[in-house]
Amino acid sequence: MKHRHAIMMTCIYVTLGVGAVITFLPFLWMFTSSFRTNAGFFDTYFLPVDADENIAWSQLTFTHYHKLLFELGFGRAILNSIFLSSVTSVIATLFAAMAGYALARFQFRGRGFALFVVLAMLIVPAPLLLAPTYQLMYDLGLIDTYHALILPAAAPAFGVFLFRQATLSSVPSQLLEAARIDGCGEFRIFFTMALPLLRPMIGAFLLITFLWSWNNFIGPQVMLQDVDRFPLAVAVGNLKGLYYQDYGLQMAGTLISILPVMLLFLMLQRDFISGLTAGAVKG
């Protein structure tokens, strides 16, 4: 029995190990590729080799990064992405937290209807809103501005749903009642008592919206026209068309684009994964 258990565990470790390697290899390949020139790009998988089959470190190059930052305006695109994603995620999270909290802990007229609308919005696919939102932004004269991207993202029904769930499970009513009896105003209660208790969900939802905004291609592609306003997703996408054969350059652009969100995730990951599954498991 013990012997069988050991075999079983070995199988599990091997499966997980192979899976982890397969998951990791594309990242490694992208990383090494971003330092390689087109000459002999496909001769070896990861690093170039010289005639003696030794790794040819001297063939690695920083030119792709140099070109991206100093010729192709990627510095600008990075700042655009950081600005767009930060503003979007902070506003969306604040509004969603307030609305979700209000729906969870207040009795008021229209609450049932508001809740219904929020839940109904969860099944409306985003592409459906693409054409009418473009039409609206055109009518408002907001095409080629960041307002066209930030405003629709500032009202996330999904976020309201998540914050309502989080409030129900981690902000006890008795605590709020006690604070009211002590004469605390509703907004002070929200900002000084409820928000700290909602911290895990705030971390998770900030990251969810930041990631969504960072990786959003179709929105900026449709709404923006000026190259100087493009975020990374659009800028990298354009590399594909303009530098079709320049593989190292494409991978360098991709690496620049995913590195910041990876770092952000590593800082917030504990909150993120638990927040992500909270809606599903408790809901």
Partner: peptide, 21 residues
């Protein structure tokens, strides 16, 4: 209080999500 807390979300939602829908 609940209406004020809901207002930022509700206003933006009405104009930039519900209206396009």
């Amino acid at each position: 209080a609940p209406y004020i807390m809901l207002a930022p979300f509700a206003l933006i939602f009405l104009v930039f999500v519900a209206w396009p829908l």
